[in-house]
Simulated scan of single mutants.
Amino acid sequence: NHNSSCFVEDGSYLRLKTVTLSYNFPKKWLNKIHLSRLQTYVTGQNLFTLTKYKGYDPEVNAFGGDSVAQGVDYGTYPQSRAVIFGLNVEF
């Protein structure tokens, strides 16, 4: 076996992994509808990745924690993107 750098490329990246935005409604509004707390929020995960890597995802590793094959990408699926909306209510 001879190692080759034929398929080696720069895997550096910048990723927005998780961000949450929330809003707490003012107490004077909540008193009118008999609530003690009302909060809305939206959370985004894996929203964007800046990279020149040609594969699906520069962070994935086809073999998990295997130190021998670490960093090998055999077309492993990228991490999923999610947007979650929520509402917290206290009476």
Rank of each mutant, 00 (worst) to 15 (best):
N1R: 11
H2K: 13
N3I: 15
S4T: 13
S4G: 08
S5E: 14
F7L: 13
V8N: 12
V8Y: 15
E9F: 09
D10T: 08
G11N: 03
G11R: 07
Y13L: 07
L14R: 09
L16G: 05
L16C: 05
L16Y: 02
L16P: 01
K17L: 08
K17F: 00
T18Q: 12
T18W: 06
V19P: 02
V19K: 00
T20K: 06
T20W: 06
T20P: 00
T20L: 09
S22W: 02
S22K: 08
Y23V: 05
N24L: 15
N24T: 15
N24R: 15
F25M: 08
P26Y: 05
P26Q: 12
K27W: 06
K28A: 11
K28M: 04
W29C: 10
L30R: 05
N31D: 11
N31C: 00
K32M: 08
H34N: 10
L35D: 02
L35E: 01
L35M: 10
S36I: 06
S36A: 12
S36Q: 14
S36G: 13
S36T: 15
R37F: 11
L38S: 04
Q39W: 01
Q39P: 03
Y41K: 02
Y41I: 03
Y41C: 02
Y41S: 06
V42A: 15
T43K: 00
T43F: 02
G44M: 01
Q45V: 10
Q45L: 10
N46F: 05
L47Q: 06
L47S: 04
T49W: 00
T49E: 00
L50T: 08
L50E: 09
T51W: 03
T51Y: 06
K52E: 13
K52A: 14
Y53H: 01
K54M: 11
G55R: 02
G55E: 06
Y56F: 14
Y56W: 09
Y56L: 10
D57R: 05
D57A: 08
P58A: 05
E59C: 07
V60Q: 04
N61I: 07
N61S: 15
N61D: 15
A62D: 10
G64I: 04
G65L: 15
S67P: 07
S67E: 12
V68K: 14
V68N: 13
V68P: 02
A69V: 04
Q70N: 14
G71Y: 00
G71T: 05
V72M: 11
D73W: 04
D73T: 08
Y74R: 00
Y74V: 13
G75V: 00
T76R: 10
T76I: 12
Q79Y: 13
Q79P: 05
A82N: 12
I84H: 01
I84W: 02
I84D: 07
I84E: 06
I84G: 06
F85G: 12
G86V: 05
G86D: 06
G86L: 04
L87M: 09
N88I: 12
N88G: 09
F91K: 06
F91H: 03
F91C: 07
